[in-house]
């Protein structure tokens, strides 16, 4: 074999290998060139008539070629094998997948968890208490004696055994202060009850009560903590506004509004064109309340707040009817997956 013949063989083989369309073609090429009777073997055999020196030169060239072709074969085989799989006819990949089951928590649970998470980050401890309360814890200890007109603000459900359903989570202030020694920071989520029902009122709803008592927590701190809370739960852009208000168990008292999340303060139906939404009531704990739990009013001071969970959920999720929460229709619940 002449050098140019080896070169021609190489060129031909290269061309044929790279043009092999499928594994069958490739296999016959392998047999044709690299098989026992293949052209390479034939070429090696043809060397026997040459001189030793020529044998060495041509032999190594042919062996080189053999190795190259084997590599080429493997490479081509890899490509064709991969291509072959792609040619497999697939199933209809647009069919729906087999989803694992996934339920959802109730939106009110989601909001309560979020509120509690924010305050536990600030070192508040979560506490809970009874929903059936006494007049004393629900009213009297909170500086709302029997003759107080503020009782009109909370239409109360009474039970036949003389107890009542708590109208707010504020009795938890009293219970927590009696149970613990100051300083204290607590947050108390739970169900509360008032006897009215319409699009905006439900006879049962949820509140979260907060209380922070130590030797120097001030009205400015109340503003700081609650503004922080508003931005955490409604977003960084939220603006807050504090208005004087009245609760018998706080003095000074305050209500906090946030800039309307729907219209960003421009005025819309949800915020009655004011640009503001009322979110919570708060204030510095009234000395009469501290006295009711035997705290030294010259030493301890602090703030309390109460917020309506449904109200926050309605604003956050843009829900316009409070009854949706308690109808528990699956479509509504699925919105919170």
């Amino acid at each position: 074999m002449k050098p140019e013949e080896i070169e021609a063989l190489k060129e031909k083989a290269f061309k044929e290998f790279s043009e092999a369309k499928n594994l069958t073609d490739l296999e016959s090429l392998r047999v044709k060139y690299l098989g026992k009777k293949g052209e390479i073997t034939q070429a090696l055999k043809s060397l026997k008539n040459l001189s030793l020196e020529e044998k060495r030169i041509f032999g190594s060239k042919i062996n080189e070629l053999k190795e190259l072709l084997e590599e080429l074969y493997q490479e081509r085989k890899r490509v064709l094998l991969l291509e072959e799989e792609d040619r497999e006819k697939g199933i209809d990949p647009t069919l729906p997948g087999r989803r694992p089951d996934r339920g959802a928590l109730h939106p009110l649970t989601l909001v309560i968890e979020e509120i509690c998470e924010i305050f536990t980050r600030l070192g508040f401890e979560i506490v809970t208490g009874p929903e059936v309360e006494s007049d004393y814890y629900n009213f009297t200890a909170l500086n709302i004696p029997e003759w107080h007109p503020a009782r009109d603000m909370q239409a109360t459900f009474y039970l036949k055994n003389g107890a009542l359903l708590r109208t707010h989570t504020s009795p938890m202030q009293i219970r927590a202060m009696l149970e613990k020694t100051p300083p204290l920071r607590i947050i108390a989520p739970g169900k509360v009850y008032r006897c009215d029902a319409d699009v905006r009122h439900s006879p049962m709803f949820h509140q979260v009560e907060g209380l922070m008592i130590d030797e120097k927590t001030s009205f400015s701190d109340l503003k700081g903590i609650l503004s922080f809370f508003a931005r955490e739960i409604f977003g960084e852009k939220t603006r807050v506004r504090f208005r004087p208000s009245y609760f018998p168990f706080t003095e000074p008292s305050v209500e906090m509004d946030i800039s309307c999340v729907i219209c960003e303060g421009k005025g819309c139906r949800v915020c009655s064109q004011t640009g503001w939404l009322e979110i919570l009531g708060a204030g510095m704990v009234h000395p009469e309340v501290l006295k009711a739990v035997n705290y030294d009013t010259t030493k301890w001071q602090g703030f309390a707040f109460g917020l309506g969970v449904e109200r926050i959920a309605m604003i956050k999720y843009e829900i316009d009817d409070i009854r949706l929460f308690f109808d528990n229709h699956l479509y509504f619940l699925e919105s919170f997956k």
């Binding site: 089951d101 339920g103 049962m204 619940l333």
Partner: peptide, 11 residues
């Protein structure tokens, strides 16, 4: 996680 939905009903 088991695919159940939480509900809240009146007390």
């Amino acid at each position: 996680g088991f695919g159940l939905f939480e509900v809240i009903t009146y007390s």
